[in-house]
Design a protein around this nucleic acid. Sequence first.
DNA 1: ATGTGC
Length: 481
Amino acid sequence: MKSIRNFLKRIDESRMIIQKGSLDGIDVDCIVYLNEELEKNLQDDALLQLVNVARLPHIVKRSIAMPDIHSGYGFPIGGVAAFDFENGIISPGGVGYDINCGIRCLLTDITVYDLKDKIKDLLTRIFLDVPSGIGSDGRLKLSKNDLKRIVRKGALWAVENGYGFEENLERIESGGFIPESDFASLSEKSIDRGLNQQGTLGSGNHFLELDYVSEIFDENLASSFGLFKNQVAIMLHTGSRGFGHQVCSDYVDRFTSYNLKEKIILPDRQLVYASFKSVYGKDYYHAMNCAANYAFCNREIISFFIKKSFEKFYKTDKIGIRLLYDVAHNIAKVEEHTLDGKTKKLIVHRKGATRSFPKGHKDLTGLLKKTGQPVLIPGDMVSGNYIMVGGEKSLYESFGSTAHGAGRLLSRNQSQKVAKRKDVIKEIEKSGVFVLSQSRRTILEEIPEAYKDIENVVETVKNAGLSYPVVKLLPIGVIKG
DNA sequence: ATGTGC
C-alpha cells in the first residue's frame, strides 16, 4: 500500500499540501507548514491525523497543521480546523485534554544583571510560593459558589477577589473570560477536581521561567510592547489542570456513546464530535468555556503570586511587573473570518496552535489594534522563547493562527531513555539555566533534546507570513512542574 | 495534559 506520505507535495519553502480529492473522503486540502529541515521530523501518524480531520463533516477550506505538529488525541497537536457555524461540528479532540492551556508573558523593569547572581534564591522563593507538580493543591480554598463564579468570570474573578489586576484584563486573549459558559454543563466529578487546583502550575510541559531579552528583531514593535535588551521577563505555561482534564474526559465519553448510538462512522474513534447546535455540542462548548475561564483565572492568580515573590525578594514594590499578553493555545472559538469575500461565522479549533491576529483586527483593542497581537512561542528550556506578532497572511492561510511551541521530537518514554544516560541537570545548568522541579522524571521528559528546534519553527511561520519575530528570550531559571 | 497505567 502506498504510504500517505507520498501524497504530500511541497508548495514552497514553508508549506506542504495533500490536495483535496487525492485521498478518500478528502474534500478540502490538507496544509502543513514545514521547512525542509522540519519535514524530516514529520511523523506519519500525525500526518494521518491531519488527513482524518479533513474527513470530518462541514470542515471549511482546509485542514491545517503548524510546524510543531506531532501526534495528539484524534487531532494532531499543532492542528487548526474550522467548521461552519450553521451546520458544523465541535470535537473535544480538536481542543485537547488541557483546555485553554496557554502562555503568558510578564515584563519587569529589572535587567538580567540585577538578577544573575540571585537567580537560585529568587527562583527558590517562587518555587515555594507557586504550588507545582501533579495533583498539587492550591493555596486557595474555594467553595462551590466561588467555582461557579470562576467558570463564568475567568480572570475577572481573580481581579474582583484580590488575586489579580484590572489593567491585565485587556492584555488577556478574549479579555480574560468567554461569556458562553454554563456551570450546569459540568459533572460533579469535574467540580470536585476544580475546587482545590486554582493557582497551581501543574506538571509535564508546564513551566515558569525567568528569562531575559537576548535579541531584538523589530525595534519599533519591541518598544511598543515595552521590551528592551537584557530586560527580565517571566514566561508562564499552564492551563486548566485536573478540572479541564475531567471536562474533556467527560465529554469524550458522552460523545463516544452518542456517536455509537447515531451510528456515525468516524475515520478514527478519537474524533468523536457533535453538531455545534445540538444539545451535545452546546453542552460541550459551555463546559469547555468553563475550563477556558478556569485557566485564564489560574494564570492571573499565579502571576499575582509571582509579583508578591519578586516584591518580597527585592524588598520593594518597584519591580514594574506587568502583563505583556496571555494567549490560549488549546481552545475552540466562534470567530468571524472572510471566505470567498464573504464574512462567515466559524468554529475554529486550535489544538496546540496560537491565535495570531494582525494589526487592525476587529477583535483587538487599544494599543494592540495598532501593533497586532503578541504571539508567545516557547522553545525547549535551554534554547529559549520567541515573542512574535500576528501576521496579515494568517487570516487567509490559517484562520488567524500560528505555531504554539517547538513541538515534541521524542515521546515522553523515549526522552526518559535518552536522559537516563547522562547527568541532565548538570548539562542544563552548564548551559546557564538553573532548574527546579518537584519531580526528576519531569525533567527527564522535558530535556532540550526532546524538542524540535524552535528556530526552524519560527523561520517557517515567519516565511509563511503567519507571525513575525519581535524579540527572543533566553531562560536563566526554570521551574518545571 | 492527567488524583499518569490494562
